[in-house]
Design a protein around this nucleic acid. Structure first.
Lengths: 342, 342
DNA sequence: CTGAAAGCGCTTACAG
DNA sequence: CTGAAAGCGCTTACAG
C-alpha cells in the first residue's frame, strides 16, 4: 500500500512545467484562445492528456463568475408531465455545455429557504417549473441579479420572464369539445387552487360555456393528482342521475386518469355516459387503458424558448423580462368521442 | 437608471470592515467555528444580514475541495420508477445540506463523455442508477478518487459500491406466483439485454421454473418500455392456442402495463386467460386500470443505503467498496389472482 | 504569440 | 479568542 489513496490531481502548473511553457499558456489552450500557435497547443494538449489534466471547474468559476450550471426547480415528479420536462431540459442543457442542478419539493413542501442558499454562487440562473417557490423569492433572486425564467406558471411583478401554454384558450377549446361530444352537464375537476394554470384553464372553460349558454356547471376540487381525480369523479358520479355530469374537464391528465379509473370501477361507460378531457398530453394519455382526449402542451417549444430567454439574461442581466404564451392543441381520443363521430 | 444593473455582492471583507473585525473572523462565523465569542458572532451576523452577505460557495469549494454536490445519473425518466428515485434522492440530499447535479441520458444515449467532464471538480461523488454509463467510466471515476455508488445495477470490477434489490430471488418468487395462479405456459418478456437487472430477474425466473419442472418457457425481447411490452404481448397472444402463454413475467412494471393494454385491446381476459406480473411496484401498478401484481423494490432503503455508502466514501476515500442486496416483496393484485383465490 | 503577476473569495494553519 | 498571511487553481489585463 505505498501508493497514496488519493493522488493529487494535475494542475495547469504541472502541465506548464512538463511542457516547458507558462501556466498562462496552458490556461489559454483550454479556454481556446485563438492566438496560440498550433504547435504550442498540440504540445500542451499532449502533455495534459499524459498527466490526465482537466481544468478545475471550480477555480474557473471563481474568476469567470459563471458556473455553467442552471438550477431547475420542479415539484411533484409523480406527475409524468414533470419528468418529461426535466429530461428535455437536461438533454438540451448538456448539449449547450451546461449542467443542471435539480431542486424538487415533495407535494406541500416549499423551496423558499433553499433557493437563496443555492444562489450562493452555485448557479447562473433558474428555470422554475413549480408552484413551490413563492413569487417573493423569485423577485428576490431577480433583484440580486440571478435570472429566473418561469415555465408553466406566472409570478406577476416578480421581474422574471415566463413561458407558458395558452391555458385560457385551452380551457375554451375543451368547453367546445365537450359540447360537440353532446354533453349537456359538463363539470370541472380543478387543480391546485392557487396555481396559475388551474385558474386560467378554469376561466377559459367556464367563460366559453357561459358564452354558449351553459351556466350551471359543477366544480370539484382536486390537487393535480391521480388520487384527487379519482375521488372527485366518485363524488360526481354518486350524484342523482339528473344532476350527474356527462362530461368532465380535468385540470390535467393525471387527474383525468384518476377520473377515468373511477368511472371504470363504477361501470360508467366512457365516452357514452361520461366524456373526459384532460390537459398536458402526457405519454400515458395515449395508452389504450385511457385513450384520453387532452390539450397538448408544446413542451419542446416551451423549453426551447425558456432556455433562450434564460441564457440571454445570463449574458445580459439588464434585459427586460419577457412573457411568452404558446398555443396548445386539442388531441381528440376515445374518451370524448361519441358514437357517430369519426 | 443610475443604479447599476448588477450590484457587486458583499464579500466577507465587506462584512469584516463594517463589523470592525478581520475577514478571518467573518469566515469563522459562517463555518461555525466554536471558539468565537457569542458577542462577536452576533455582531457579524447582524452586519451580514444587513449587507445581504452569504458565503460564496465556489470560493469555499476551491479551498475545502468539496462542492457538497452529488451527481445523480439516471436514464429514461419516462419509466416512473426513476422519477421516484430522483425525487427521493433529491429530498434526502437537501435534508443533508447537499445539492444534486442531475445527469440524464435519453434512451440509447450514453453519458461516458459527460461524466469525466463533470468530474472536473463539480461533484463530490456519483450515484449511478443507469445503464448508460459504462463500467469502464465508472472504474475511471473511482480510480481518480471520485466515489461512485451504483443503484439498481452492477459493474463488477469497477471498484464502485452497489446497492440493489435481490433480483434473482424476485424472479424466483414470480415463478412461484404464476404457478400458484394456475399457469401452465408461463413466458418472459425481457428488459434491456445487457442490464444486470434483466439478467438476474430472468435467471431467477427460469431457474425456479426448471426446478418445478417447467422447462418449455417462451421468451420475448423488450426494452423496459411500455411500447415494447405491448408489442411483445401482441406477438405472444397471436400464437396458436396450444402455444399461447397463460402467464407473463414482464421484466418491469412499465413493460407489464404495455402487455396488459395489449391483452385489453385483443379481448384477452386478465387474469383468467392471462396472468401478468411485473417488477418495481411503481404507483401506476396500483391503479385500477392495471391492478398489477409485482415485486416491490425497497426504494427508500436502497436510497438510504446508497447515500450512507456514498457519503462515507466521500469522507474516507480509502474505504473498500461494498455490495448490498436488499429483498423485494411480492405484492399480489388482480392481474394474477385466479378465481377461487382470496 | 507568450509570460509574469494580480486577483477571484474564501479557509486554515500559525502566532499571539 | 482573533488577526495576518498563504494559498486553493484558475483567467485575464498588461507588457513585450
Amino acid at each position: 500500500m505505498t501508493r497514496s489513496a488519493r493522488p493529487r490531481r494535475a494542475t495547469a502548473a504541472d502541465v506548464a512545467q512538463e511542457a516547458g511553457v507558462s501556466q498562462s499558456t496552458v490556461s489559454r489552450v483550454f479556454s481556446d484562445d485563438g492566438r496560440l500557435t498550433r504547435e504550442t497547443k498540440d504540445r500542451v494538449r499532449a502533455v495534459a492528456r499524459e498527466l490526465g489534466y482537466r481544468p478545475h471547474a471550480v477555480a474557473r468559476s471563481l474568476i469567470t463568475r459563471r458556473t455553467n450550471i442552471v438550477g431547475l426547480v420542479t415539484s411533484d415528479l409523480s406527475n409524468p408531465f414533470y419528468p418529461r420536462l426535466v429530461e428535455t431540459f437536461t438533454t438540451r442543457l448538456h448539449a449547450l455545455g451546461r449542467r443542471v442542478l435539480l431542486l424538487t419539493a415533495g407535494v406541500g413542501e416549499d423551496l423558499d429557504d433553499l433557493l437563496p442558499e443555492v444562489l450562493s454562487s452555485q448557479v447562473d440562473g433558474y428555470v422554475v417549473a413549480s408552484a413551490s417557490v413563492s413569487s417573493g423569492v423569485v423577485r428576490e433572486c431577480v433583484r440580486i441579479g440571478t435570472p429566473v425564467v418561469l415555465v408553466n406558471r406566472h409570478a406577476p411583478g416578480s421581474g422574471a420572464s415566463a413561458v407558458s401554454c395558452d391555458n385560457v384558450a385551452g380551457g375554451r377549446t375543451v368547453a367546445d369539445a365537450l359540447l360537440a361530444a353532446g354533453c349537456v352537464r359538463p363539470a370541472y375537476v380543478a387543480g391546485r387552487e392557487d396555481a396559475s394554470t388551474n385558474i386560467e384553464r378554469e376561466r377559459g372553460f367556464f367563460t366559453r360555456l357561459r358564452e354558449r349558454g351553459v351556466t350551471d356547471v359543477r366544480r370539484e376540487r382536486g390537487h393535480y393528482t391521480y388520487a384527487s381525480g379519482r375521488e372527485a369523479a366518485r363524488r360526481l358520479l354518486a350524484l342523482p342521475e339528473r344532476e350527474r355530469p356527462d362530461g368532465l374537464f380535468c385540470a390535467n391528465d393525471i387527474t383525468a386518469m384518476g377520473a377515468l379509473d373511477a368511472a371504470r370501477e363504477l361501470g360508467v361507460r366512457v365516452p357514452q355516459d361520461l366524456a373526459v378531457v384532460g390537459f398536458d398530453d402526457i405519454p400515458a394519455a395515449a395508452w389504450s387503458a385511457y385513450d384520453l382526449t387532452t390539450v397538448r402542451q408544446p413542451v419542446e417549444d416551451m423549453i426551447g424558448r425558456s432556455l433562450d430567454l434564460l441564457l440571454a439574461h445570463v449574458e445580459r442581466p439588464d434585459l427586460a423580462p419577457e412573457l411568452e404564451v404558446l398555443p396548445g392543441t386539442l388531441v381528440e381520443r376515445g374518451s370524448s368521442r361519441r358514437k357517430g363521430q369519426a
